[in-house]
Computed example of a mutant assay.
Amino acid sequence: MRLTARARLTLLLTALVLAAGGTLTALTYLLMQQNLRHRSFFIDLDPSGSLPSGTPQPTPPSGQGLRDLADRVEADTLSALLTQAGLALVVVTGLAVVLGWLVAGRVLRPIRAISSTARRLSAENLTERVPVTSPADELTALAGTVNGMLDRIQRGVAERDRILDSQRLFTANAAHELRTPLTTVRTAIDVTLDGHPSRAELLAMAGDIRDAVEHVQRVLDGLLLLARSQAGVGAREPADLAGIAAAALDAARHRVRDLAVHADLRPASVSGEPVLLERMVDNLIDNAVRYNQPDGHLTISTGMADGEAVLQISNSGREISPDEAQALLEPFVHGQGARVRTDGLGLGLSIVRAVALAHRGRLAVTARPGGGLDVTVELPAHLVATADRLG
């Protein structure tokens, strides 16, 4: 039968007390034996004592008789010492068993509390915590460590649930985005081939199918880029956000000619994957142009702040609430969590956020009071460039 931790601790404490008591008894016996061997005994015989008259006087013992008497006294004393010490050791050992059991229970009580709390915990119930007792000792530190571990597990489970919910929503919306053009293709084919279509009807059907295929291709390209961004950055290369932004503005010049563009592009060196960084800037400019208003404005700036490369894009547009602005970061989700059909795919800011996180950066989206958005991307600066500036 396996002994419990409390029983083993009790046996250990009892064994220590028994060993200490046995050692103390043995030392006492040896010291008493040495003391008795070097002690002198004197017998006082008073002939005129209380003996009745006429009683013959005892004969004083000889030297050998005195030695025999001393040996008997020594033997009787040591025997009595062993008897009494043995009884005392038995009593102390019994008390040690009782006190050891109580002390072991007291010492192990916090551990039992930790074990009991752990048994009650589950994936659906991570709110309980181990009580932290005082004064601060090793068991208090253990309880604090367990509580910290439970906090991390609870945050991890909450993050897992959030990611799963986001992935389920993403999958549903992606399936809808892909199903819609496929339904359009199927409908166009069924309607056109129901009878004897003319050449014009066949050309119209071909045009509808081409548009649907292009839409599917854009969705798949966006999903692949989003997945690649979320997978992390491969080989890192030095890049300048100012140069990337200038190239993106130049490529979109035919789309921004009706907008007032204000560019303040200062060097902002980062280390990352240029293709992903270019797509991030392209998406930001594309969103700022796509959801702008006639005769609106677009402001883009780059630079360094607190050792980080900063890219800021502001645009005019319809007025939205702060909650809507945060919802724009979710794939296919716009405006208070509702899907809205536009000429875009709804993946732009999701890809931007994925690229920023892959480069260990941050993305902030803020609704402007007069309408439109302020988007800020902060990325770690390129270390070599930072060292050059410090030098």
Score class of each variant (00 low, 15 high):
residue 145 T to F: 09
residue 386 T to N: 03
residue 122 S to I: 08
residue 157 V to G: 02
residue 106 R to N: 03
residue 137 D to F: 08
residue 271 S to E: 15
residue 103 V to K: 00
residue 156 G to H: 11
residue 179 R to Y: 07
residue 349 L to I: 09
residue 319 E to M: 04
residue 44 D to M: 04
residue 200 A to G: 13
residue 322 P to W: 11
residue 249 L to W: 00
residue 133 T to F: 06
residue 116 S to K: 02
residue 254 H to E: 14
residue 119 R to F: 07
residue 171 T to K: 04
residue 102 L to Y: 11
residue 249 L to K: 00
residue 190 D to M: 11
residue 382 H to R: 08
residue 174 A to L: 14
residue 174 A to Y: 11
residue 83 T to F: 10
residue 137 D to L: 05
residue 16 L to T: 13
residue 191 V to A: 07
residue 137 D to C: 03
residue 258 D to L: 11
residue 211 D to K: 12
residue 285 I to Y: 02
residue 295 D to Q: 15
residue 24 L to W: 15
residue 183 T to N: 10
residue 261 V to E: 11
residue 322 P to Q: 07
residue 373 L to V: 12
residue 94 G to P: 05
residue 10 T to D: 08
residue 217 Q to M: 09
residue 285 I to R: 03
residue 189 I to Y: 06
residue 232 G to C: 13
residue 124 E to I: 13
residue 274 P to Y: 00
residue 203 L to G: 02
residue 68 D to L: 15
residue 230 Q to T: 11
residue 5 A to Y: 09
residue 312 Q to G: 01
residue 245 A to L: 01
residue 381 A to P: 02
residue 161 D to F: 05
residue 18 L to M: 14
residue 252 A to Y: 12
residue 168 R to G: 02
residue 123 A to G: 02
residue 88 A to K: 12
residue 357 L to Y: 04
residue 294 P to H: 05
residue 248 A to M: 01
residue 355 V to T: 12
residue 29 Y to D: 06
residue 82 L to A: 04
residue 255 R to G: 01
residue 248 A to G: 09
residue 306 D to W: 04
residue 221 D to M: 00
residue 38 H to Q: 04
residue 143 A to V: 10
residue 124 E to Y: 14
residue 377 V to A: 07
residue 67 R to W: 01
residue 250 D to G: 05
residue 99 L to Y: 11
residue 279 R to G: 01
residue 153 I to C: 04
residue 212 A to P: 10
residue 230 Q to R: 15
residue 342 T to W: 04
residue 314 S to W: 10
residue 233 V to W: 08
residue 243 G to Q: 14
residue 131 P to Q: 06
residue 41 F to H: 07
residue 358 A to L: 09
residue 360 R to P: 02
residue 170 F to H: 10
residue 75 A to L: 13
residue 322 P to C: 05
residue 370 G to D: 14
residue 364 A to W: 00
residue 108 L to P: 08
residue 45 L to C: 03
residue 290 R to A: 09
residue 367 A to G: 13
residue 134 S to M: 02
residue 41 F to W: 14
residue 71 D to K: 07
residue 366 T to F: 02
residue 359 H to G: 07
residue 384 V to M: 04
residue 34 Q to T: 06
residue 96 A to N: 03
residue 325 A to M: 12
residue 292 N to L: 06
residue 8 R to K: 14
residue 167 Q to R: 10
residue 52 P to D: 06
residue 222 G to L: 09
residue 237 E to N: 05
residue 11 L to C: 04
residue 229 S to K: 02
residue 5 A to C: 08
residue 40 S to V: 08
residue 329 L to N: 04
residue 1 M to F: 01
residue 345 L to N: 12
residue 64 Q to F: 06
residue 134 S to P: 00
residue 377 V to P: 13
residue 134 S to Y: 06
residue 145 T to D: 09
residue 180 T to N: 11
residue 120 R to D: 08
residue 361 G to I: 09
residue 383 L to R: 14
residue 338 A to I: 09
residue 285 I to W: 00
residue 183 T to S: 05
residue 280 M to H: 05
residue 318 R to T: 14
residue 137 D to R: 04
residue 302 T to R: 13
